[in-house]
Design a protein around this nucleic acid. Structure first.
Lengths: 198, 198
DNA sequence: CCTACCGATCGGTAGG
DNA sequence: CCTACCGATCGGTAGG
């Protein structure tokens, strides 16, 4: 009995996070009220506040589940014995797939970080910094002539720019697939557009 | 007399737009109230509503002034008789400089588009689409093997990703300058990171 | 005695 | 150009 209740508890909590991700992705965190969220879950505000102490805690859950998934994928790839070029490509594919599979969470992570309370924001930012350092070090292995950490960091951010900016334009049902975009971004980073096009 | 009043009118209106850009960049459009804006301008809410009919009209002004500047720079470069590689580089430099010079407006343009009323949003989106088509055509000239418009569009968006994503991390007072970032992004697009590093 | 949950409403603040 | 306000809605909580 207690097991069943716990299972239902987790299931309901996951349903709230998923609805919140969709709502915050579409209207922004401040543009979507707790009442809106309750309505989308066919329940009451009080039920939402039974599962979460504050609105910001829901936002944290949306972001944290996503950034944890990114972090897990990135570390698994990073620790594999492959060449750094191959790791970078695997990471681009994994990220694009996580983006497509969790597009709402991804948009929320990229747009609503400033609406988290300081302490919670710091947790997310720490994980993001780990991801960036991972890519920066891969790029330094691939292109040692980047030399300084500042330039390697800038290169990593240009790479993340290509991948992350897709949330503003990429259509999973469009003419170019997520895997093709991942390959293009890696090809551009490794060899430039001219070679990427061939 | 009327001239002096008109001059003061424009000056005050520009001061409101600038204060609004700073406020919306920092707290988001929904996170900053008209009262906040009035306070930052050392005036009253009513004065704000003397210059603007609605809060969204201020947001439009913030975005429109910036996108008009981008559009003007891009078309001037596009119509020059230079090689497409050189035009792309000039465009990257112009954009990075406009970003540094109008960082608040840039952040607002990239983050708050969804808070504009439909018709106003369409005006901005039209100008942005023009910019994208311009870069897409430059890339097709540089790398004809991109072949389809869909792939050339994706390539243009990867390029804009590198440039636009800087709003999340670039520090004008940091170790790498805006001009260096512009060169890196173009070098990556043209020849890949390995060559860009050399 | 606890949990899960509801209808109604709290004190404050938003844009106008 | 300000003070004084409005209809509505906000995030969060009361009793049961």
């Amino acid at each position: 009995m207690a097991r069943t209740q716990a299972a239902e508890y987790d299931q309901r909590r996951r349903a709230i996070v998923e609805a919140a991700a969709a709502l915050y992705a579409q209207h922004g965190f401040l543009g979507a009220s707790v009442a809106d969220l309750a309505q989308r879950c066919n329940t009451s505000k009080s039920l939402i506040y039974h599962y979460y102490q504050a609105k910001e805690d829901i936002l944290f859950d949306v972001m944290n589940t996503h950034v944890q998934a990114l972090d897990e994928a990135a570390h698994a790839i990073s620790e594999s014995p492959e060449r750094p070029e191959k790791k970078l490509r695997a990471l681009a594919h994994a990220f694009m797939r996580l983006y497509v599979g969790a597009a709402d969470r991804h948009v929320v992570l990229l747009n609503e970080l400033d609406n988290l309370p300081k302490a919670r924001r710091a947790e997310i930012v720490k994980l993001q910094r780990d991801l960036i350092a991972l890519v920066r070090d891969m790029l330094l292995e691939i292109a040692p002539r980047l030399e300084t950490k500042a330039r390697a960091h800038a290169a990593a951010m240009l790479f993340f720019g290509m991948i992350n900016w897709t949330h503003t334009w990429f259509d999973p049902n469009g003419a170019v697939s997520a895997d093709e975009i991942a390959d293009m971004a890696v090809d551009v980073a490794l060899g430039g557009l001219v070679r990427a096009a061939g």
